[in-house]
Design a protein around this nucleic acid. Structure first.
Lengths: 216, 216, 216, 216
DNA sequence: AATGAATGAGAGTTCATTCAT
DNA sequence: CATGAATGAACTCTCATTCAT
């Protein structure tokens, strides 16, 4: 079903760099399994990747995988949770360093959001597109940080509106739009992009502030 | 690999309506296969759906499928092409009825773009998320209309900039952002949404015009 | 784990004839699967027999098995149920043709019991030794006829005692002893036996009546 | 294949006590391996038990097993041989203390036979039901004591017939029946039994003497 | 147009066993 | 003595697909 070697003519992710959060990026077998799985899941999807594909990419037997993870699903769960957790932490750190002005905060959030999706493009794709393959128990670890991340966005926008710094037809829709446009960056940003990640982030911050009618 | 009956805790698409373009939505077996496949591909992904799953949803034997389609891949190819083609046509029709002003044109495009993603949510998800599973020959039919759709957006934006109606840091990025936020609507818009598709479309038009700094 | 070709030095069953109840002994693929499975389960046990062993003995691919049975366990369940059901029917028929005297009835039961274990030695071994491998749902079909068979024995013995025809220290133990000695016949009766099945049956009837202290 | 945790609805052995012959029941790792293996083999069978199941029950790694036994098969071989050897010794000791009368000797043999199957139920099940899993070299250690045990029974019966103390249609069949009914005790005797092991033994002695038409 | 039976390949997972530490 | 990591083979079962009917 999977495993076909022919290069797909349409890619799910333009980036070619497999980037794991620091804590996971260990040089031991476990880390190499996560790395290989991330690259394959991002390229072919979870269901389209076999346990033997992963093992082959690592250079081990498929049975060896089971000494490190109890199932294929657990590998995905760990990647997805790490992705959502790293995303959450990035945004939380950005907020923490942004002062009290909702405009500054929102700008910092969008910047962090976009940069995360350029830097961890594969992780973002996998964490978002493959969650439905996880059982309720295993998906919980991803849902938690994801919900908190959403609250960071909506909370900041709500506060900005209360303080009269934002003016937008619908706060929730604005959050959805800003989130959605940033998420999409993970699909197309890659080595062929004509601009740096920083430039993309700066521009998306401008877009977001315009969507929110920010008064500066 | 697929076939699990337990309700997934995270859905790929909030909509529960399986909607095919009119031309495909025939009551014969062929149409019912496409309908069933669309629902399953949207829910579990192409690789996560078996030919038996589709046949089971239609109420036929899997062998019967091969009297209507030469392969599983051809079913996806037909759905993807129809999705991209219907999308292109919607945008082209919107343009055609929008007069000569790039602001009006862009508004019409965004409106049509968003409405398409609310109305054909499953088709949009499948056509966008599963393209990489298609071989180069079969993906071509989807690439063509998709490219034309992109040109509608970028062409209109470029013209608006030339005419001084738009003011935006980066035309391509603006198109990517507007496209991305609209695409994402297909994931969350559904029966639980607190607003009508029209209201979403109106608001996203406003967002898009803000992103473009449209002078009205 | 299984599949080793070396002939075991100790056999679970001396008989070399694979005998299915008439209703199952069809010449189609389904019947041939049951026949092959019976022979292998009797020889190597259920857990010691692989699905490929069975398929190989039939001369088909292992995948083909799944067109006829939903799982390996279902094959065992069908064999076990058929074994217990055939056993029950043999004893019930014997009772029906035995008149009203508990002595005659018990003699008929033991005769049928022993003859069943000589004729269907493999089925008896499998139905008795491998029941614990079946899940609660699948084992139910075997438990039912087995319980009824037990009642035939204990009921007849109890009635014989009431009527003063039997005299035995413990009715339940007598039933267990008579059942156990007959069951064991399936293990050793085979082509090398120095006596006919009929002769064994006659002798075991005599043993049983002695155990019961039958007054003749 | 094994390892399922759901309680089986049909048990191979009613007893819940794992009892090893004194010489094997050491508190060191080797003894604990034998103990765990006995319990698992009795419950799920040899082929249905994995080396990891045994290690898990002991609380060690499966690799550690290989410091004590050269293979899984050797564990079974040791248990089986110990079972047959203990059985043989019990019967031999019984004979030694029984005087010269074949009736007394046979009674002592049956008593010992039954008591062994109540006391060492698991060992008896394993030693009898799993012999066919052993290679010719490893099975030899079990065959030897088993043959001698058989000779104790048949020799005593033959002598009793010669001396006119027994009167039975077929000596060999009588031995098979007596052996078979005792063997079966290991399957059903357990904590739920409504009688003591002694009572069972006494009754089975009576049954055996009746089968043999013993003149007392 | 539809089917039931069959297939070869491959899915995820477990097997008994080895070995360096 | 015990382990954690690794292995190659085998496990049950599902895959997309074919074909005669």
């Amino acid at each position: 079903m999977s495993s076909s070697a022919a290069p797909p003519s349409v890619r799910r992710v333009a980036s070619e760099r497999i980037v794991l959060p620091d804590a996971m990026a260990t040089p031991d077998t476990r880390g190499r399994i996560l790395e290989a799985a991330l690259g394959l899941f991002a390229e072919r999807g979870y269901a389209g990747t076999s346990i033997r594909d992963i093992a082959g990419a690592v250079g081990i037997q498929s049975a060896t995988l089971y000494g490190h993870f109890p199932s294929k699903e657990h590998i995905l769960a760990e990647l997805a949770q790490a992705g959502h957790e790293a995303h959450r932490r990035r945004l939380a750190d950005a907020m923490a360093g942004a002062g009290a002005d909702p405009v500054d905060q929102l700008a910092a959030l969008v910047r962090a959001h976009v940069l995360f999706h350029t830097e961890f493009a594969m992780l973002a794709i996998v964490a978002n597109a493959e969650l439905e393959a996880l059982s309720p128990e295993l998906v919980a670890g991803s849902i938690r940080p994801r919900s908190e991340t959403e609250r960071l966005f909506t909370g900041t926008i709500d506060r900005g509106i209360e303080l009269g710094r934002f003016s937008t037809p619908d706060a929730w829709l604005a959050a959805a739009a800003i989130g959605g446009m940033g998420l999409r960056v993970a699909s197309w940003f890659g080595p062929g992009a004509r601009m740096t990640a920083d430039a993309v982030a700066d521009t998306y911050v401008e877009f977001a502030l315009r969507i929110l009618g920010a008064s500066r």
